[in-house]
Design a protein around this nucleic acid. Structure first.
Length: 416
RNA sequence: GGAGGGGUGGCUGAGUGGUCUAAGGCAGCGGUCUUGAAAACCGCCGCAGGGGCAACCCUGCCGUGGGUUCAAAUCCCACCCCCUCCGCCA
């Protein structure tokens, strides 16, 4: 949520931001509506003040009682108007995107994202590398057919050493984050609408959400929702910031409208698994914390030996809540290109304002915290490991750092 | 799922229709005293919104939402949450 004072003080700047981000809210009309609202607030409050004043005389003054009774009718009407206008303003306000960092590149799709740096040597194979789907089938560790049988197309199983490798990766990654000051969480995997709204997933990504019929609950699309929501309606002591949280959860997305896109393999699915990084910090610290999370993401991939590039996500490819976003695209040898494996967003106070996450320091300074939401690793990283670490004979060598967690150093095709 | 009890400021806890402008206590902040600290004493001590250059003024908030009333923390209804016991259960 944008600070409504921005609308009141500088609607032109707000309109420019909306135009740049492709937001269709009519800022001029919203400004006028908000002015109506402010006028109604003053009228209602004046009427209430009058009512309260008269009310004190009522005990021994029957005339005052009659006058207050009349006032009530007028007041009720004004209050109704005020409610209507307020909810109309709020509804449109909820659709306004966050401001943008100055260095966010222009552009409309992921093709316009700005590459910032490359890391690692792409593996040089003297054979035709397989993609993760081919490897997964050959090694018997990814089962999409049974995922579709049991659940639906877009669900899958990790089996055998695939499941063990995935679990090793997630456990290892979380250990690395804990060593870097993060607190580990296991969170609910369902959340109520307010939490999804507060984290900016509603209304913007409503069609991505699995809702439970008859309940105010939906499957989480990411633990960002439950981790940021954790401190909703709380005031955090500035000296405890930044708070660094990590969780490992499944993530559920309907992927409505993306059928057929990236359909091969398990790159785009209805359920995946993610170790997340969340930071709550003071406003002035969010660029630094954003970079810190970026450093963590890159550290993990470097330890795994996966080549990647970092891109600064362009205006058109960034969600409305984001202020600035980096993606990491890992090299997928079998696919033959860079593909997104993590993303890291500075949301500034967009979520904190919606959820009421405030800070207060010892001097009495108050405000909304900033939040950073960053991936650590997901199943996609397991896929990148498969494609990067494959051998000519179809086996996959487990990255060294995962071996103590996996308990084996290679995955081989079944012999039988 | 059944029965009962309860939700009041950072915490504790009084308050059953009208100076509630929410008592008292604890914690916190400032001060007096002290070499320093403690104790004692004095004062301050919620959040949000609106108006004003400002001092300040107004409005709302006692789990949430409705209702009754000139007037609700207090009465009525619904819902949410917590606790205790019983049942079921990974």
């Amino acid at each position: 949520m944008i600070d409504i004072r921005l609308l009141r003080d500088d609607p032109a700047a707000l309109r420019a931001n909306c135009r740049r981000r492709g937001c269709t809210v009519d800022v001029e009309a919203l400004y006028a509506l908000d002015q109506d609202y402010l006028r109604l607030v003053r009228e209602v409050e004046d009427l209430r003040a009058e009512r309260n004043r008269l009310s004190k005389l009522c005990r021994d003054n029957p005339d005052a009682r009659d006058r207050v009774r009349d006032l009530k009718t007028i007041l009720a009407d004004k209050e109704r108007q005020q409610d209507e206008v307020r909810s109309a303003v709020e509804q449109q306000l909820a659709w306004l995107p966050n401001l943008l960092a100055e260095d966010v590149p222009e552009g409309t799709t992921d093709a316009d994202n700005l590459p910032l740096r490359f890391w690692g040597e792409r593996p040089a194979f003297d054979f035709e590398p397989r993609d993760h789907q081919a490897l997964g089938e050959r090694l018997g560790i990814i089962d999409t057919a049974r995922g579709a049988k049991v659940a639906q197309a877009g669900f899958y199983y990790w089996t055998g050493k695939g499941a063990e490798l995935a679990q090793a990766l997630f456990f290892w990654a979380q250990k690395q984050l804990v060593a870097r000051g993060f607190t580990a969480f296991m969170t609910p995997c369902l959340a109520k609408e307010r939490t999804l709204f507060g984290t900016g997933y509603l209304p913007f990504f409503a069609d991505q959400t699995y809702r439970l019929e008859g309940e105010d609950l939906a499957l989480i699309g990411t633990s960002e929702q439950t981790l940021v929501g954790y401190h909703a309606d709380e005031t955090l002591a500035a000296e405890t910031l930044p708070l660094r949280f990590t969780a490992f959860t499944p993530c559920f997305r309907t992927e409505a409208g993306s059928y057929g896109r990236e359909a091969r393999g398990i790159f785009r699915v209805h359920q995946f698994h993610k170790v997340e990084q969340i930071v709550f910090c003071l406003p002035e610290d969010s660029p630094r914390c954003h970079d810190e999370c970026q450093g963590n993401e890159e550290f993990l991939l470097q330890q795994l030996g996966i080549p990647y590039r970092v891109v600064c996500v362009c205006v058109g490819d960034m969600g409305a809540p984001g202020y600035k976003k980096y993606d990491i695209e890992a090299w997928f040898a079998g696919y033959g290109g860079y593909r997104e494996v993590t993303s890291n967003t500075n949301l500034t106070d967009f979520q904190a304002r919606r959820l009421g996450v405030r800070f207060r320091d010892v001097e009495g300074r108050k405000g909304f915290v900033h939040t950073i939401s960053a991936t650590a690793v997901t199943d996609r990283v397991v896929c990148a490991i498969l494609e990067t670490c494959q051998q000519q004979d179809g086996t996959v060598i487990v990255p060294e750092v995962l071996r103590p967690y996996a308990g084996f150093d290679r995955i081989e095709p079944p012999t039988a």
